[in-house]
Structure formats: C-alpha cells, structure tokens
Amino acid sequence: MKTKREMADLGLVCIGGSQGGFEALEKLLPQLPADYPCAVVVLLHQYRHGAGNLPELLSTRTAMPVKAVHDRDPVIPGHLFVAPANYHLLLERHHAFALNTDAPVQYARPSIDVLFESAAHVYGPRTTGVLLSGASIDGASGLKQIKAVGGLVACQHPDTASGKVMPQAGIDTTTVDKVGSPQELGQWLKQLHP
C-alpha cells in the first residue's frame, strides 16, 4: 500500500479539449487501466446548460472511477475528475480543487489555460498536460507553462482531430513530448505510470 503522500506525489494528468474533444476522449480513456494510479482531470468546453451529464457519459468510456468536481473536493489519486460547466477549475496546494466564476478567458469558462497554469503552479514537474481536438487556441499557453516547470506535455495529432486549431496551437507554442492519435496518447499516459 502506498501512503497518501506517495500517491499524491505521482502528480496530476490534465486533459483539455473542445470541439471534437469528446470523440477523442472516447478513444483515449479506454487505454487507461482501472487502477491507473494518478488523478486525471478532464476539462471540455461545454455548452453552458447542456453538459450536466458529461461525467455519466465519460464513465461509460473508462474503467477508472469518475467524479464530477464540486468546489473544494479533494484530489484523489486513481480517480477521473470532470470539470463542471460555467466555472473555472483550479488547484490548491492541499490537494483540493477550487472553482471560481471569474470572467471567461477567450470566451471560455472553464478555460484550459486557467487549469493548466494552476496545475503547473501546484504540481510543478509532476504535471502532465494533454491538449485534444478543438477550434480555439485555449490551452496552448497553459501547455507552455506546464513545460516551463518541467512537466510533460502532449497534443493530439491535428490530422486525427476534427478541431485542428487547438492541438496545432499547442505544438506551435511549445516543444511537446508526444504527438499522436487519441489511442496513442492514452498508451503514452499509461506507460508514464506503469
């Protein structure tokens, strides 16, 4: 049995996407085993009222336990957390989520940049950022910040994405550690924590 501390030290995997991001997750998530040791956070830009069932939809695609995030919820290793609509999602040092209703960033709330930047600040080199399909450039600057603190970053291959702008912006903005199809990104995440 690992101690709570050791588990937390495994870090945090943050996955962001927008248009086409759900389809990418449908292929990525099944690659992760039920006992994947890290906490995984999934953030999709969502229609303001329409996305309450995203956690249920995703739980049919992954063997990991899925949780919708509420303010102050603890970050538990081995769980997959889903960002709620209409709030920004951030992280606190004491391994808890924080939500806020600050103004949208480049029209997006939740914003991938806000999540990635906050994760990079708290988890430092133990942060992994993945940018999936999407039609905006949200996430590119956050990816760069994760890289700057020594974390790992990956982008969906634009050829496999219905929204090419987002992953391409990631690739153009920073040196990414992995570019691949959603399945390949899933395999890559899996072998990071065998």
Binding site: L90, L91, E92, R93, A98, N100, D102, V114, S118, H121, V122
Partner: peptide
C-alpha cells in the same frame, strides 16, 4: 481568501 483564485487575481 482561497489561495488559487486570489493568486490569479
């Protein structure tokens, strides 16, 4: 205040 949000502000 919650550190993550006030830091951002």
């Amino acid at each position: 205040y919650a550190p993550a949000s006030i830091r951002r502000r």
